[in-house]
Simulated scan of single mutants.
Amino acid sequence: MTIETTDNVRSLVAVAQQAAAPVALETGKYHVLRTGDGIRTVDLTGPDHTGIPARKSGTTTVRDAVSFAAYFTKHADPDTEVYADADRLTVTAVLDAHTADTARWSGHRLTLGLRKTESWAQWLELDGRLMQQEQFAEFLEDHLPELLEPSAAEMLEIAQSIQGATKVEWQNSTRLASGQRQFQYVETTQAKAGQRGQLTVPETFVIGLVPFEGSAGYQLTARFRYRIGKDGGLALGYKLERPGDVIRKAFADVVEKVGADIEQPIMNGTPA
């Protein structure tokens, strides 16, 4: 019978402990391990282990051309595709679009979603609608900064004249040689019953509006509209001339600005 020395026993224990010690596996790599049951493969390359997504994905929406260019410059590559859709008023970049030889995910996108300004929406909301005198006058007063011709001061005077002629009976209107329209009225208040007066307004006026947030401003012509009711009341309004053309021009200018900041061509349409 062989008796192991104390030193030999200690050496065997140390070897056994070293063999049983756990081995740290490096993340981001594949590992092949020999176990009692055979060979086992361990995949530590996924995002759960590395903390890094497998690929870029998702759609980022920006509101102006400058923001579009900033994000685009950071993430685009030579095979990125860009589309402009005039119906939806959007510019979309497929940042990981297919290459000529290789299919890619096409799941990382950037969209310029233009947002119409509040002033544009307010002018379009009342376009072609007739309003009571006070409502129309208040609308002009609220939008003085957008009134270009006649000047805001002149339009304010017109608005105040409209407000001051509420208790009257409107009789007729005449188009003057200057292009203005003159309305005749008779006072109906007890103190001034029968006193005649007149209100002169321009046939057309020019406004300046910014259609989209962050875009340039554009001029529009508006035509005064009116109706004298059978009861002698006066309804006033305006009709914008071809606002759709202004929107299309504004969108085209935004697309042109986007194109000036990137190298890729901009295609007309929408991505798949």
Rank of each mutant, 00 (worst) to 15 (best):
G232S: 13
R40F: 12
F139P: 02
F68D: 00
A165W: 09
I266N: 06
T27G: 12
E26G: 15
G197T: 08
K167E: 01
K249V: 01
A103K: 09
R63A: 06
A21E: 09
Q182G: 09
G46H: 02
I228H: 07
S106P: 04
D142M: 03
Q17D: 10
A54M: 11
A24P: 09
R196K: 14
V258L: 08
L234W: 06
E118C: 07
L148E: 10
A97N: 04
T80D: 03
T200N: 03
P78F: 05
Q190L: 10
F136M: 15
R55D: 02
V255W: 01
V254I: 15
Q195K: 12
G208R: 03
N172M: 11
L140Y: 12
M1E: 06
P78H: 09
Y30W: 15
A20S: 13
E141H: 05
S161L: 05
E187L: 06
T188K: 01
S173K: 06
I207W: 01
S161C: 05
G58S: 05
G229D: 08
T6N: 11
V94I: 14
G179Q: 01
V9D: 08
L44A: 14
R55H: 10
E241H: 09
R196Q: 15
Y218S: 11
A76D: 05
N268C: 05
S178G: 15
Q163L: 12
F136A: 12
S57C: 11
S119V: 10
K257R: 15
M267T: 08
G107A: 07
T6C: 13
Q180V: 05
G214Q: 11
V82P: 05
E157I: 13
E256Y: 03
L33D: 00
T174C: 10
K56T: 03
T45V: 12
G113I: 00
L33H: 09
A153G: 08
T80Y: 01
L130A: 04
T166E: 13
V210T: 15
F72W: 11
A65T: 06
Q122P: 01
V32N: 02
Q171W: 10
V82Q: 02
T99E: 12
K29M: 03
Q219E: 15
V62Y: 00
L112C: 01
V246T: 13
G208V: 12
R225N: 12
T61Y: 00
